[in-house]
């Protein structure tokens, strides 16, 4: 198995056609550098994000998943990014219950003008996941590193975060 310190995570990023995908384009046009660990999937809207997509990415070997969309109040389809936000919150709880650290799923808002911000979000995400280490999800016989007790505690934390 790869050592933690030279571990390079694979991250799947879901982008909205109108904002974050264009922010990624803009980062490219401006030649802003970020680590090559993230692979982007274009959706028409973050609201198109079926929670199954996130599960599928983890199941297929992604170490983390990013969901990106228009800033609240700026959705190209009026308000669908709020639906993405709801699914994100639900997904985080589900992941914890499945033994996956909540930090492996990250939501970031980026408008079409925010190439620099998106690149920074990606860079920070890669750093965080490097520290977390690989998600040994589909290795045979591997046990979740998170115990039920820890998962319960994490769930409480998330609920606090969401409600506060």
């Amino acid at each position: 198995m790869t050592e933690k310190n030279d571990f390079e995570p694979t991250i799947v990023g879901f982008t909205c056609n109108w904002c974050s995908y264009r922010a990624a384009d803009l980062a490219g046009i401006a030649r802003i550098k970020y680590p090559p660990n993230v692979r982007l999937v274009r959706l028409m809207c973050s609201g198109r994000l079926d929670p199954t997509f996130v599960m599928k990415a983890f199941a297929e070997g992604a170490d983390a998943v990013m969901i990106t969309g228009c800033h609240p109040g700026e959705c190209h389809y009026l308000e669908q990014n709020y639906k993405a936000l709801r699914r994100y919150l639900l997904l985080r709880r589900t992941l914890v219950a499945m033994g996956i650290e909540a930090e492996r799923l990250h939501l970031a808002w980026a408008s079409a003008a925010e190439g620099i911000q998106l690149a920074r979000e990606i860079t920070e995400m890669v750093e965080r996941v490097r520290t977390l280490g690989p998600l040994n999800w589909h290795l045979n016989g591997s046990q979740p590193e998170v115990t039920n007790e820890a998962a319960g505690k994490k769930l409480q934390e998330i609920e606090l975060e969401v409600t506060s």
Binding site: R48, T52, Q80, K83
Partner: peptide, 22 residues
């Protein structure tokens, strides 16, 4: 308008979206 939110939300998988199907 093709945002696909309903496609993602349908619990029965009864909605399909052209161009961005499941």
């Amino acid at each position: 308008q093709g945002c696909g939110t309903c496609v993602a939300a349908c619990p029965a998988g009864a909605i399909t979206g052209t161009g961005f199907s499941n």
